[in-house]
C-alpha cells in the first residue's frame, strides 16, 4: 500500500465538472482522470490538453495511401505494356482516382487505429473510479492523492458542486 487514495467527485453537468477541475488546478492539484458521457472541449481545455496525435497518424496514413495508389497503378501498368486504344501506358488522370481512394482508405483506417492505440483500447481491465452513471448522465473527476490530502481534495470537489464524493483505495 502506497498510502495513496482515489477521491472521486460526481457532477450533474459539464459546467460544474469544468469548475471542479479549475478549482483543483488553482489548488495545485492535477486531476488524475475525468469521466464524461459526452466529448467536451471545455474539459480538455481545463485539463490543458493540446491536440491529439491522431492527426499526425492520419496524415501519415493519407500520404502512404497516395504513394501506394500511384505505386500500384504505375507499377502494374509498367509490368505489362497493355496498349488500349492508343492511350498512354502510364496515364496519370485515371491513376489519381485510385490514389485518391487509397488516401481516404489508409487515412481513415489510420484514424481508427490511432484512436485505439492512443486510448489504449481494447481495454479489458476495469478503470479505477468508474461508475456506470459516467456513461449516462454524470461527470466524474478522480484525484489520486496521499491519504493526508484526502480531506482537502474532498472539500474542493464538494465546494465545486460535487453531488457525491467517494473515495477508494488506489
Amino acid at each position: 500500500m502506497s498510502g495513496e487514495i482515489d477521491v472521486i467527485g460526481s457532477f450533474a453537468n459539464e459546467e460544474m465538472c469544468v469548475h471542479a477541475i479549475e478549482e483543483l488546478k488553482d489548488a495545485h492539484i492535477q486531476p488524475t482522470r475525468v469521466f464524461a458521457p459526452i466529448p467536451s472541449e471545455h474539459i480538455n481545455h481545463a485539463l490543458g490538453y493540446g491536440r491529439s496525435p491522431v492527426r499526425a497518424l492520419v496524415l501519415t496514413g493519407g500520404i502512404t495511401g497516395i504513394l501506394t495508389g500511384f505505386a500500384v497503378t504505375i507499377g502494374t501498368s509498367m509490368e505489362w505494356w497493355l496498349n488500349a486504344g492508343g492511350k498512354p501506358i502510364v496515364s496519370l488522370p485515371p491513376f489519381i482516382i485510385i490514389a485518391f481512394e487509397l488516401m481516404i482508405l489508409f487515412g481513415g483506417t489510420s484514424a481508427v487505429l490511432g484512436f485505439l492505440l492512443n486510448s489504449r483500447m481494447p481495454q479489458i481491465d476495469p478503470i479505477p473510479g468508474y461508475s456506470e452513471r459516467f456513461s449516462s448522465d454524470r461527470f466524474g473527476v478522480l484525484v489520486r492523492c496521499p491519504e493526508s490530502e484526502k480531506d482537502r481534495v474532498e472539500g474542493i470537489l464538494k465546494g465545486a458542486g460535487g453531488e457525491t464524493v467517494v473515495h477508494e483505495a488506489a
Binding site: L47, S52, R55, G114
Partner: peptide, 22 residues
C-alpha cells in the same frame, strides 16, 4: 473497454472529426 475518460474522448473526438473530413 470504453469508459469515457478524458484521454479516450480526446482521441475519439479527433479521430471522428478526421473520419468525417475524409
Amino acid at each position: 473497454g470504453w469508459r469515457g475518460t478524458d484521454t479516450q474522448w480526446q482521441h475519439w473526438s479527433m479521430a471522428y472529426l478526421l473520419l468525417a473530413g475524409l
